[in-house]
Write a protein that binds this DNA or RNA. Structure first.
Lengths: 206, 206, 206, 206
DNA sequence: GATGAATGAGAGTTCATTCAT
DNA sequence: TATGAATGAACTCTCATTCAT
């Protein structure tokens, strides 16, 4: 068997099950079954179920945080930057969907997860700060006292959108509530506008 | 013992423990201990631990949703309405803190919780819709195609703020990260402005 | 079911099995089976298998150590005292046979057991010291520099005798080796003489 | 790799670990690690862990029993012989310390170990018998009905002494209890006197 | 209604042993 | 001969649930 393949199969199975059922909900027996290894094999690679959980999250979160650096926006209209940023974030959340879901679900029960989450927020906070700095040069903006909370709402609604779509896929549940009216086509532009101009919308004349 | 008192003590204990440790993390033994009843007594009132969980959440969420009706905003400036709405929501989230926390934590593992959460969102969506209707009459706003996601980000960042503050209280952990810079004094006004005008801030002249 | 009966049944079963198979050799399933309770019931009364082990040994060893006080020898010939002491010790070891066996078997693997064993030795050392004090007044004896090791040899050979007899009973093995030639009738007197006069035997004239 | 070297390394590692942690306490993984071989290699040389245990003990015990023959005492005072015998035995127990410790620890759980132990006792019994025969010619002694138990006490206290000293070395525990007062200088002579004359000591005039 | 001892299925984990390489 | 990844039976322990009192 190719090197590392078994370990990867276990991680893959565990990540999937943890993201769907939570840490307590997914049993080692299930994980072994899905990975097609014996239950004991898990402990050849991981010292405990908890350690396996962290290995499911930690390296990928690292990778995700690095992904931010690589995508430096190039547009020189600020609105263009904002749209770009939203699109990138949506792609990122989609790619690292399971990892983020696990992190958020286990947040209340694990101090280690809180650490990871803080670094997750911090990185995005830094990125938002870079955007704002650019915006300040380009246009007149108001950097509010509580702007990190704005960023949080922004980040969380993007995440919620991705997670919602995944849940529809996975569960097959009918989640098409009348008040949830998603227009995928204009999503990034709408969210960027919301981020920039709020519910009042873009002023007609500037 | 006064009628209903035992049942209420169990619910109170369970709600507290579920909100702190999650459904799986809180044991029936612990709940019984905190409620000062025998473990078996729980099953006099609830058919299962899961049923107890739902009873911890369902009635209070109902109550919370009703709280929205009672607080009809009276201001006639739209910005005043928005500030009022944010303040009310912060109060509401604080009051129903444990209930919401339980609901959100168990969301990924329980279809029933998803139903509750949907009604939670729906109610707030309706309220936001009422505000928007008012706004449309008062001022010219752009009702975006994806505005429900705006509302979600708004709702979630308010919740996050309340939950974050509670966690600081409860755990005593030092959560004062440099990038999290909360100015409580202007919180409601800042968030209302963000909701209204986005990161670009209030136009200087209208 | 009478109070305490279940706990006692578990302790009884555990003591028996631990003394025959050792701590690792006896499983909780076996103990539960012998005690005619469910495996989980063990953990109603004891926090762990290790705690159960200590409860099998600790209280009875306490009791045994107290038994020494009650049997104050009354004879005024020193040889009479020695015979009395040996007889008492044989009875004691027989009565607390399982307890001592467990303690000795687990000695190498448990620091707590070492503590118990030390108190076991100390108590007997004190008793031997009382005998010697009496002997010093009655007859001329030599209190050797290393007499505690003599006492140890004495104590261990008595224990070995009792344990050997029990093993014959329990296992049904044929342990009648030609060089092991036990004369039960004169046992106590012979051992007392050995203790007093060694292999050279009692001097013909005193 | 030189023939037999691997096998010997495994035996050496196993003997050391069995003597310190017991048969159940030492794992095959640990043994392989200490011997610097793969876990599977153990099974190239030994059919099972149990078989490895016996190979750790059996040949060395054989060797030890042969050591008795070689050291035929040459003194012609009986007390001199006794001192010689004690010294030899202390040296022997020190040399074969791990082997004896393993044998005694596993005694209660293994019928094969009982066989080894019986041959261990038998050999020493024979030697004591030779001494006694010599003594009978040299001096007037009383060969008691239960003298084998005397010999047992003698043998066990010597063993206990050696083991106690080793444990102090190995564990670094403070085992200096006030009632244990060892005078190493006169040890052999004291024990020989005790063996010969008992607690009453050597008669003043013979 | 209230009890709490008893249950037992099922959890995570260990480790002697096997076998393809 | 030597390897070490893989195995799976067996272990200790947990905890929601039951039921005689």
């Amino acid at each position: 068997m190719a090197e590392g393949q078994t370990r990867d199969r276990i991680i893959g199975a565990a990540r999937h099950l943890f993201s769907q059922k939570g840490f307590n909900g997914a049993t080692t027996a299930e994980i072994a079954g899905k990975a097609e290894v014996a239950e004991g094999t898990i402990y050849t690679y991981f010292s405990s179920k908890k350690a396996l959980l962290m290995e499911c999250v930690s390296p990928l979160l690292e990778e995700m945080l690095n992904d931010f650096e690589e995508h430096i926006p190039e547009s020189d209209s600020f609105r263009g930057l904002a749209v770009f940023s939203v699109e990138m974030r949506l792609r990122l959340y989609e790619k690292h969907h399971e990892t983020i879901r696990i992190m958020l679900n286990e947040l209340p029960y694990s101090a280690e997860m809180v650490d990871l989450f803080v670094s997750f927020l911090q990185k995005q906070s830094q990125e938002v700060a870079r955007y704002l700095a650019k915006a300040e040069k380009m246009e007149q903006i108001v950097r509010s006292r509580n702007y990190w909370l704005f960023g949080l709402g922004h980040v969380m609604s993007l995440w919620f959108y991705v997670n919602f779509m995944k849940m529809k896929e996975e569960t097959g549940l009918n989640l098409d509530y009348p008040f949830i009216n998603i227009s995928e086509e204009h999503l990034a532009a709408d969210l960027a506008d919301y981020f920039l101009y709020g519910i009042m919308g873009r002023p007609k004349k500037e």
